[in-house]
């Protein structure tokens, strides 16, 4: 009942999602130099350091070089970071520190549209970093197949999923400080244990199911499939898993935001 005030109605205005997205895009353009640096430079450093530096030590894997093995995982891992950061810390800052959701909701915008715009923007940043790092990886000869373009699709779905998840965290976080836990307890473990840097089969057997259940794992698998040009049922299922989680987290974030903001 109380939650009905903003947004439980059936009507949904896609134009408002675009409106929220455009707000972010306008802000992004103002600081594009800094933003672009974050989107491109850091992942490229990781790619070079891990791919070639560590790659020297690791040598050749079964049928690809180590650099080729890690590149897709680094690409989608960064997509995750950007979406997660934007929709948790970024959204929290807009909501709790600057109170801009409050004035936004005086306009005829529903919570579902607001959340949709936030997630769409998180996914956009994920796609930006995906495209940039994928291009660098391709230029270095680390993407073996033209199907590697499909990694962009994986990056987009990864962005939508982690954007929705990030927004869930933002909507329940009591303080900015507590949000750092999202990075230490969610971002970092996922980044390192989702098969991006080593095959999951090399983990102790009792940890393998855990690694498979982690939501970044299917993204890494799918990205690697596209990059090497071997896309099968497993990759399609992985994408469906990402989409499915998004369809779970997006309404959850909407619900939690309503609960938090509509007092």
């Amino acid at each position: 009942m109380a939650l009905a005030v903003i947004g439980k109605t059936a009507d949904f205005r896609p134009a408002n999602v675009i409106g929220v997205w455009l707000r972010h895009f306008t802000a992004f353009k103002r600081g594009y130099l800094i933003e672009t640096t974050a989107i491109v430079v850091e992942p490229v450093f990781i790619l070079l350091a891990v791919g070639f530096g560590v790659g020297q030590l690791v040598g050749q894997l079964a049928d690809v070089s180590y650099a080729e093995f890690v590149a897709p995982g680094i690409v989608v891992g960064n997509a995750m970071w950007h979406a997660l950061f934007e929709c948790s810390w970024g959204a929290y800052r807009r909501m709790q520190i600057h109170k801009i959701y409050e004035s936004l909701l005086t306009a005829p915008v529903n919570m579902r549209e607001l959340a949709g715009g936030e997630i769409a923007w998180g996914a956009t940043r994920a796609v930006m970093t995906t495209v940039a790092v994928l291009a660098v990886a391709a230029a270095l000869g680390l993407i073996g197949s033209p199907m590697g373009l499909g990694v962009i699709l994986v990056g987009a779905l990864t962005g939508l999923m982690f954007g929705s998840l990030g927004l869930v965290f933002a909507s329940v976080a009591p303080t900015t400080h507590s949000l750092t836990l999202v990075f230490t307890l969610v971002g970092t473990p996922l980044f390192f244990f989702s098969g991006a840097f080593f095959p999951i089969s090399s983990l102790p057997s009792y940890l393998q199911p855990v690694a498979w259940a982690m939501p970044l794992t299917p993204a890494v698998q799918a990205a690697r499939g596209f990059a090497t040009g071997s896309v099968g049922v497993q990759e399609v299922l992985a994408l469906a898993y990402l989409a499915g989680l998004t369809l779970l987290f997006y309404p959850l974030a909407t619900y939690l935001l309503r609960r938090r903001l509509i007092a």
Binding site: A27, G31, L104
Partner: peptide
């Protein structure tokens, strides 16, 4: 409740879009 990431003018334009 102004948007600190936008210019004064963009604050108006971004908000008006919802209408």
């Amino acid at each position: 409740g102004l948007d600190p990431d936008l210019s004064a003018r963009d604050n108006l334009i971004v908000h008006a879009r919802y209408y």
